[in-house]
Design a protein around this nucleic acid. Structure first.
Ligand SMILES: [Mn+2]
Ligand SMILES: [Mn+2]
Ligand SMILES: [Zn+2]
Ligand SMILES: [Zn+2]
Lengths: 138, 138
DNA sequence: TAACTAGTTTATAATCATTCTAAACTACTT
DNA sequence: AAGTAGTTTAGAATGATTATAAACTAGTTA
């Protein structure tokens, strides 16, 4: 067992899931990366089918990803169109979003600062603030 | 013909649509307001069925709203879930979003300021920046 | 080992928002 | 009146997501 496989197994157990080969394959795609990974369920399915020759079912992909989201290992992002993206960067952070390519890119927290913060409606409090910078070809 | 009806007709004509009674009914719901209106297509359908007793077809609602969006009389907003919202405030602006009630509230431009703006990826330029402040019950 | 149990995978069906289609309808022009 | 272009509508199609239920797997107990 590789070192990272042990980490995957821990993530799965923490998420209330048994470490099966399908789920570990999903972990390999999602978490064996240096940089933030933004993906749709469809992206995930295609990568798995390309890398390994086996297929996993759509239901397993959805269930596993949602379990990770619930546990906080993934974040769901809804921007600019009708499908959900998931994000391996689970901290509150800002994005560049290219409407043409539908690509999301993380922005380093230090690179942005919100100066004035508005007063929320009565009886409400602000729990998060995220900026989307729409970008396009120069 | 009322004064605002003349404005609706102009908006429709500008959007390349003939002013029919169904479309004018849609305009009455959308544009006869002081404050910004955020709505889903389903909201629009329900309001029309409640106010007038007649029904208009889903297709007409979608088509008309999309024509207004294309012309710039409405803005489409995708936040936090699987359905589209439309916004009668077509300027670039920030929102409060209550995840429990699914409600959007506009933020006055003067109440927010972004201090540091990040450098976009190579060959790309920033065309818009919008902040979503997630809020919840205090 | 055999039986038992809880959890898992999968194909497929169901759901729901959105878009498409084609037929009936309307308004405007000749 | 006939012709035409545009419109409305019900219902079908699409596509992402969720639910279902039967077959499969792994871990536990006898
Ligand atoms: Mn989801
Ligand atoms: Mn749309
Ligand atoms: Zn991100
Ligand atoms: Zn708004």
């Amino acid at each position: 067992m590789t070192n990272s496989e042990a980490i995957y197994i821990e993530k799965l157990r923490n998420s209330g899931l048994r470490p099966t080969k399908q789920r570990i394959r999903i972990c390999e795609v999602l978490f064996n990366r240096e940089k933030t990974f933004h993906f749709s369920i469809n992206d995930l399915m295609k990568i798995i089918q390309t890398k390994t020759n086996e297929k996993i079912s759509l239901a397993t992909a959805y269930n596993t990803v949602h379990a990770f989201k619930k546990k906080g290992y993934l974040k769901e992002i809804n921007i600019g169109n009708e499908i959900s993206y998931f994000d391996t960067n689970t901290q509150s952070h800002h994005h560049f979003y290219d409407n043409q390519t539908k690509e999301l890119v993380d922005i380093n927290s230090g690179d942005v600062e919100i100066k004035k913060i508005p007063t929320p409606p009565n009886g409400k409090k602000i729990i998060d603030a995220e900026i989307t910078f729409k970008i396009s070809k120069e």
